[in-house]
Design a protein around this nucleic acid. Structure first.
Lengths: 263, 263
DNA sequence: TATTATATCTCGGGT
DNA sequence: ACCCGAGGTATAATA
């Protein structure tokens, strides 16, 4: 049986680290470095980060992350890199990571290294996300009565101009209806997005459609915008929507509780 | 002299790991775990991730990240957590991380652990970002002639309705001008944002202002929108803007080169 | 490749 | 606490 090879190096010298890291990177291993460094970035913007202790992760596809000891976001990063070069310069181990498009570069100047982990991770796990906007849209497609009695949906993802309206249908009086769905609180921005569809549709067909923004909650200024732009909105209960989902065989107890507690 | 205490544990048993992790978390140390796990998430949405090898990072403020071996984004995360609980259940080490607002929970089920790193990282480094939208706005505030000859800027971040216009001024003919700035390619969305300000301003004052979208590049459908909405746009050269910056003492050689190569 | 819209967006700033 | 907008947003889908 193959033994998993995850290697750990404690307090390596910078020249030892140079060899470890360059070897790991060239064989596309995941590399984690805990140490003290400063970081420069230049590309779409430019940044400087002075000395401090951080975690650097170089992933198997070249994704590059520099994490400070707090917070969700990396302080510097590259989503993917084509070139990763390492070299020693005096008392610093320099890692340069270059992204092709857009052309961007990170330089990490390591002054001290506490730990390095290298190894090939195998992850064939399946990731499934539930209750995203797509799923809500599909449920409302099947159950338009949740938006308005008498509403008939004709099309999902209807192309209007350059964009796509979430749902398109006709109401009880045969007026076309364009529907924009948000799974989180809808802001003025969502109302403007809907307005764009309504306006483009009218321009293209000569018929003025209704525009309905559907969301669990809507900000007051979005409602104000709706009045100004001649749009409508409908607050929906996610818990109710959730009950109409197709894959009822899947257990979602806690999400249900979560939604219940919100309402 | 205080010796830096970064601890590394190799191939711990799950019960050893339980103790290591719970101790590290309770003393607010940074914790990195490399191992095999599955992950559930429930909160604003819900997800399942089946077994695979991953890197788990618990930061000193409770930020919680589960990273797969590739890609920029964590597959599961919490920006900050108030409760982190660990326990053994049969042959699994379970880490539960709860966020208060919104109420969200992650469960990590570890089946094998290769390495754990724990320790308090000290990072007082200063992070400076150059050439963000704020800096561009400030330069254009000082040099409105870069947008249009005869333009006078009256106000930065002028509140119009519930939002804020980047710049507000009057042109050579004393017509009010609302300016929206983008540091990247401006889309239809930016044009709609500007339209909202223009419309709100007109509603509030009775005076129809000009609206100018300022960006390095503008998509064709944004230009189309401009025609429809009666707005204007001005493409600006970031390299040129860059020359007007105040802190010229700072070296920015490569960004300059970057911008030069783009134009 | 460019464009569009979503995201468990995160984060900071303002009211 | 809500709201608003930027972000080196990243990412997926689509023309």
């Amino acid at each position: 049986m193959m033994v998993k090879l995850i290697k750990t190096y404690i307090n390596p010298t910078l020249s030892e680290a140079l060899e470890i890291i360059s070897k790991a990177v060239s064989s596309k291993e995941l590399t984690i470095i805990v140490g003290e460094c400063s970081v420069d970035y230049q590309g779409r913007s430019e940044s400087r980060l002075t000395l401090g202790e951080r975690v650097i992760i170089i992933k198997q596809d070249g994704a590059f992350l520099v994490h400070r000891p707090t917070g969700y976001s990396p302080v510097n990063w590259q989503p993917a890199t084509s070139i990763i070069e390492t070299r020693l310069d005096k008392d610093k181990l320099i890692i340069m990571a270059v992204r092709r498009k857009p052309r961007e570069t990170i330089w990490v100047y390591l002054t001290r290294i506490y730990t390095i982990i290298t190894g090939k991770l195998v992850d064939n796990g399946e990731f499934i996300m539930y209750m995203d906007e797509h799923e809500i849209r599909d449920i409302l497609y099947e159950h338009p009565e949740l938006i308005e009695e008498g509403l008939k949906i004709i099309e999902k993802e209807k192309k209007i101009g350059e964009g796509y309206a979430d749902l398109f249908g006709i109401d009880a009086r045969n007026t076309p209806v364009i529907i924009e769905i948000k799974r989180v609180t809808a802001t003025r921005e969502a109302m403007l997005q809907l307005y764009n569809y309504v306006q483009t549709y009218q321009k293209q067909t000569g018929v003025k459609p209704r525009g309905i923004l559907v969301a669990p909650t809507i900000t007051s200024s979005a409602i104000e915008s709706a009045y100004k732009l001649g749009l409508e909105w409908k607050e929906i209960n996610l818990q109710k929507i959730w009950k109409y989902r197709k894959n009822k065989n899947i257990k979602h107890g806690t999400l249900f509780d979560f939604l219940k507690n919100k309402r």
